[in-house]
Amino acid sequence: MKSLAELQAIREKMKNTMSMRDEDASGIRVVVGMATCGIAAGARPVLNEFAKLVQEKGLSDRVKVSQTGCIGLCQYEPIVEVFEPGREKVTYIKMDAQKAAEVVERHLEAGHVVEKYTMAKSGLK
């Protein structure tokens, strides 16, 4: 290693890996329903897309992606819930990888809820 910049580059590269092991739970939590119903409806590519993009875009120090069991609305799976401290929970329904990418870009990065995919929009309460 001949310069501090090289060290910094490795640190940057590892940042996402290491921040996943943070015990801090104060940021945004993205939860993908991964019960049998969710998996059957295609939740796994959704989960993986979220996990990948959050790391690629360097959001992992404030966004945690994890999965949960059955949320109870099996016909609307894959369901994704976004919990943000101080804001109301947002529930996205009938998700796929493409929609996930949109949510990452517009909601997680820019802070605007993607209304058209939400449960509220579909008329469900």
Binding site: L7, I10, R11, K13, M14, T17, M18
Partner: peptide, 17 residues
């Protein structure tokens, strides 16, 4: 790289430079 990812060898860099 995991050690470097948590800030490892930063102190050595700081000391030397």
């Amino acid at each position: 790289e995991e050690y470097i990812g948590t800030g490892g060898y930063q102190a050595l860099g700081k000391v030397l430079t």
